[in-house]
Simulated scan of single mutants.
Amino acid sequence: MTTTHLRIDRERCIGAGMCALTAPEVFDQDPDDGRVLLLPAEPTAAHRAAARMAAGVCPSGAITLGEPETGGS
Rank of each mutant, 00 (worst) to 15 (best):
D9G: 10
A23D: 05
T64S: 15
L21M: 14
L6S: 02
I63R: 02
C13L: 11
D28S: 14
P24D: 09
A51M: 06
T2S: 13
I14H: 06
F27T: 07
R52I: 05
F27C: 10
E11S: 14
E25P: 00
A62L: 07
H47L: 01
V36M: 07
I14D: 12
T22Q: 13
R12S: 11
A49I: 05
T22D: 08
A45S: 12
L37H: 00
I63S: 02
L65W: 00
A50P: 01
Q29P: 00
L37C: 03
L39P: 00
L6E: 03
A16P: 00
G34C: 13
G71E: 12
V36A: 10
M18G: 13
A51T: 05
P24E: 07
G34Y: 09
E67I: 07
M18W: 14
H47E: 14
C19R: 06
G56Y: 00
D30N: 15
D30V: 02
E67M: 10
A55P: 02
G66A: 09
D32G: 00
M1G: 14
A20L: 12
G17E: 06
H5A: 15
R48G: 01
E42H: 01
A49K: 12
D28L: 02
L39V: 12
I8D: 02
L39Q: 09
G56F: 00
R48V: 15
